[in-house]
Amino acid sequence: MSDTARLYDVRYSRYAGDREPRWRGVLALARSSATRALGVRRTRGAKVWPFLLVVCAHLPAVAALGIPLLFDDAPPPLELVSYVDLLMIITPVLVAFAATTLPSLLTRERRDRVLSLYFSTAMSPGEYLAGKALAAVALMSLVTLSPLLVLLVGSIVTADAPLDLVRDYAGHVVPVLAGGAVVALYFAALGLLAGSLTAKRLFAVGGLLAVLLVTPVVSGLVATLSDRPEIFAGDLAFAPLRAASTVLPLGDFGEDDGMEQPPDGLVWAVVGGVVLLAAVVLPLRYRTRDDA
């Protein structure tokens, strides 16, 4: 037996376990970013606004489902509110949610100067942006895709003969997913673009709100006065809705107003252009890795 004793600190040791593939790190960033944006594990005050908007985004769909249950002679939910109508009704909520939630996905970390830590020891700028893009799309899906799915699934579940409706509405699933994804992707791109341009959340929120509130007014005025409907395509708040309406079943954008709409191709070009602009600008903004 040795006459010398050795003391081991068992509370700290070198890590010798396995590392997960890099995409798990990207998913971890997306998850933590999305939950922080919703105020999860933060103060109560930080949770109120995002959750309020998420609830507001679902209210029209829930109301459309509830009315036929309360009144026997009421038409079925999808005749009360089509998918396009639903997105039109909640567009102010989408704008508010995108403007107040998405830019902070990027501004907060630039403000806190965490980027040099991330890029030196955790992940590449590409992985970082991938994580943030996933978080932004997931957040926007909560207020775009989710209400559409609530309306679709709720219409089937609350019907007198659900199985018949499953057959009738089976063809809606892919268009609803596609339409919701287009709107989510568009606002995610716009929100991240605004957030990447400044470290100050207030500037990013203000800038994004200005774009989303001013362009509908300006393009609407110019299009009406000049009688050139293609100028409506410059309305950056409703552009994704116009694009989504080309794939969503049951109704088109603006059909009730009787106003002529811009060509579908132009609308898709605007939506694609915004997403492409974000895809070009974001990597450029994170080319410099040092935030010190």
Partner: peptide, 25 residues
């Protein structure tokens, strides 16, 4: 780093877990 680099709205525990996850643990 020398400069302040910690997210101020996270606890030290959450921060360490978060960065460990980003680093693949």
């Amino acid at each position: 780093p020398e400069h302040a680099c910690l997210p101020t709205d996270m606890s030290a525990q959450d921060l360490c877990i978060h960065l460990a996850r980003l680093r693949g643990l």
